[in-house]
Simulated scan of single mutants.
Amino acid sequence: MITTYVGVGSNLQRHKHIEAAINELAGLGEGLRLSTIYECESVGFDSHAFFNLVVELQTELNLSELSQTLRDIELRWGRDSQAQKFQDRMLDLDIILYGDTVSPAAPKLPRPDIYQYPFVIQPLYELCPTLSIPGAQQTIAQVWQQAKGLEALKPVELWFSVN
C-alpha cells in the first residue's frame, strides 16, 4: 500500500461534485482521511469560487493506474475532456504526493502546487505536517509557515458523512 494525497476541487455544483469525489476515492483504497474543505476564489480566471480539499488514502494502485482512474472519475462526473488549466471545473482531481515518488514527468510529483497555492498547503498541513516532501529538504509544516494567502481560505462545514 502506498500513501497518496489527492487534491479535490470543484466550482460548479460544488456540493454534489465534492461528495461524489469522496465517495469515488473511498473505493480506491483504505484509511481515507479528509482535510477541511475550503472555499476560495478562482485562481487565474474570473468565475465562481471553488471548494478545495486534500484526501489522504492508502492504495494498491500504481501511479499510472491511479492517474488514469482519477481522470476517469473526472470525466464520469462531467469534466470536459479538453479542459484547460484556468477554467471552471465540475471536478478536478490531482495527485499531490504519491509515497516518496519524485517524477519530473506527468504527473509531476511532488506537485508544484504545494508551493504555490494556499488551498493545497493548508489541507496538507492539516493531514501530514511532519511529512518530508520527497526530493526536497522541507517538511509540509516548513512550507506552510512560509505560505501566503492562507487567510483567504474559508472553511466549509462538512455536509455529508464519510464512510
Rank of each mutant, 00 (worst) to 15 (best):
L61G: 08
Q87A: 13
Y38T: 02
R76N: 13
A147W: 06
S81A: 14
T130N: 12
A21K: 07
F45W: 14
T59V: 07
G99W: 11
I37V: 15
I121L: 08
V120K: 01
L158P: 08
Y115W: 15
I96T: 04
I22H: 06
E56L: 08
T130H: 05
Y125G: 12
I37R: 14
Q68G: 10
E41W: 00
M90F: 12
L109G: 08
W159N: 04
L61V: 06
Q87F: 01
L158E: 05
V54D: 12
N62K: 10
E19M: 09
A152Q: 15
T3I: 10
S67C: 13
P123R: 10
L12N: 04
H15E: 11
L127K: 01
F50D: 10
L70D: 01
W144H: 14
I140R: 02
V54E: 01
W159K: 09
L61H: 06
T4Q: 00
V120C: 03
L63R: 11
K154Y: 00
R111K: 10
F86V: 03
I95C: 06
L61M: 07
S42K: 06
S161P: 06
V156T: 05
I2N: 14
E39K: 07
E65H: 08
Y117M: 03
A152I: 03
P104Q: 12
G149S: 05
Q145P: 02
E60S: 14
L63T: 10
I121D: 03
A152T: 13
D46S: 11
P123M: 07
D100G: 12
A136C: 15
Y115G: 10
S103M: 01
A21W: 05
I133Q: 08
N23V: 09
F119M: 02
S81N: 10
Q122W: 02
G7S: 04
Q137I: 09
S10D: 09
K108A: 11
D46R: 10
T130A: 14
L61A: 13
S103Q: 15
S47N: 07
A49K: 15
P134A: 13
V143Y: 00
L75S: 03
R71P: 02
E126S: 12
S64H: 09
F160C: 06
L66F: 04
H17D: 02
F119I: 04
L66M: 09
D46T: 13
M90D: 03
L158K: 13
L93V: 07
W159Q: 11
Y117R: 02
G78T: 02
I73L: 09
A141H: 03
L75M: 08
S42W: 03
E126H: 03
V120Q: 10
E24L: 09
C128F: 05
P110R: 04
T139I: 03
Y125H: 14
L153Q: 06
D100M: 09
F51E: 09
N23K: 14
I18L: 13
V43S: 04
G135S: 07
N11V: 00
Q82E: 15
A105T: 15
C128P: 02
V8N: 04
N62C: 10
Q137V: 12
L109Q: 11
K16M: 05
A141K: 00
Q122C: 08
W77M: 06
T4R: 05
E126A: 13
Q68L: 14
N163M: 05
S42M: 01
T69C: 14
